[in-house]
C-alpha cells in the first residue's frame, strides 16, 4: 500500500495543553478518508500541522514519501497538498473570478510575473472559468466575494483549493454553515473529484461521513482512538461511547 500522506508520532503542545498526542496517521493514495471526533479533539490542529500552518512540537509529516515537516506551507502546496478552511478565508474585495485566477496563477507558476497584465494570461483565465463553472459559480463570477451568500462563499473556499490541482486535498468541515440542501450539492461536487485525488475530510455530519468515506479515523483528546472502515467504526462501542458521552456536541 502506498500512502499519500502520513504522520509519525506527531505531537503539538500549546503551553501545558497537549493538542496532538502521538498521532501516527496513514492516508492511502486515492482514499476518501474521514477524520472524526468530538469538539476540541484537535482535528483542525492536526490539519494545521499537516499543511505547515503550525509547526509540530515533535514528530514528522510525510507527503508522498517525502518528509515535509520543515517545509513552509507554500512548498507543500507546490507538492500537491491543498486545503480548505473551516472558517472562510477569502479575498473580500475580489470577485470570485479574480480570487480563483489568483490561485490558478500560483499553480501555473506565473503569479510572480510583473509585466504583462493578468488579462493577457488567457490560459489561467480559462482554467479559472472552467473551475467556476464546475462549481456552479459562473453566473456570480464578477460579484465581489463579500456580496455573495454564505453558501457561494463556501464554494469559493473549495474552488481556491481545487485551483491548485492538488493530489491530496484536506477539507476542514467544508459544509459548515451551509444549508442542508446546498451541502448535499457541495458533497456531490467533492464526490465527483477524480479518484487519483486523495481526500482527507473533517466533518460533523455523520450521515455525510458514512456515505462519503471509505476509511475513518477517530480522534479523541488529541490522540487517535481507532481507525477502520466505516462499518467497523459504526459498530465500535468505544466510538459510540465517545459520541454518546458528548451527544450534545456530536
Amino acid at each position: 500500500m502506498t500512502y499519500a500522506l502520513q504522520t509519525r508520532n506527531l505531537f503539538k503542545r500549546f503551553g501545558g495543553f497537549l493538542a496532538t498526542n502521538d498521532v501516527t496517521l496513514n492516508v492511502a493514495e486515492g482514499a476518501r478518508h474521514a477524520l472524526i471526533g468530538p469538539n476540541g479533539a484537535g482535528k483542525t490542529t492536526l490539519i494545521n500541522l499537516l499543511t505547515g500552518f503550525l509547526e509540530p512540537t515533535s514528530g514528522s509529516v510525510i507527503l508522498k514519501n517525502e518528509d515535509v515537516t520543515r517545509q513552509p506551507q507554500h512548498r507543500r502546496v507546490k507538492r500537491g497538498l491543498a486545503r480548505t478552511f473551516q472558517i472562510n478565508r477569502l479575498f473580500a474585495d475580489m470577485t470570485a473570478l479574480q480570487s480563483v485566477i489568483l490561485a490558478v496563477n500560483e499553480r501555473r507558476g506565473i503569479a510572480g510575473h510583473w509585466w504583462r497584465p493578468v488579462s493577457a494570461h488567457g490560459e489561467a483565465i480559462d482554467d479559472a472559468a472552467s473551475l467556476l463553472s464546475q462549481l456552479g459559480l459562473l453566473e456570480v463570477a464578477h460579484v465581489p466575494t463579500k456580496d455573495l451568500p454564505y453558501g457561494k462563499q463556501r464554494l469559493i473556499e473549495i474552488a481556491l483549493a481545487l485551483a491548485a490541482q492538488p493530489s491530496v486535498l484536506l477539507l476542514d468541515e467544508p459544509a459548515a454553515g451551509v444549508p442542508t440542501g446546498e451541502s448535499r450539492e457541495l458533497f456531490e461536487t467533492i464526490a465527483r473529484l477524480p479518484r487519483e485525488v486523495t481526500v482527507l475530510l473533517i466533518e460533523h455530519d455523520m450521515d455525510l461521513v458514512f456515505r462519503f468515506a471509505d476509511r475513518i479515523s477517530v480522534l479523541v483528546a488529541g490522540a487517535l482512538l481507532t481507525e477502520d472502515v466505516p462499518d467497523m467504526i459504526a459498530a465500535d462501542p468505544r466510538v459510540r461511547e465517545v459520541y454518546l458521552g458528548d451527544a450534545g456536541h456530536g
Binding site: 499543511t51 505547515g52 500552518f53 513552509p72 506551507q73 507554500h74 502546496v77 507546490k78 491543498a82 486545503r83 478552511f85 478565508r89 477569502l90 479575498f91 473580500a92 474585495d93 475580489m94 489568483l102 490561485a103 500560483e106 499553480r107 503569479a111 481556491l160 483549493a161 485551483a163 491548485a164
Partner: peptide, 11 residues
C-alpha cells in the same frame, strides 16, 4: 486582503 490564506494557495 488575506495574508493568512495566501501561503495555502502556494504563494
Amino acid at each position: 486582503q488575506n495574508a493568512v490564506r495566501m501561503p495555502a494557495l502556494g504563494t
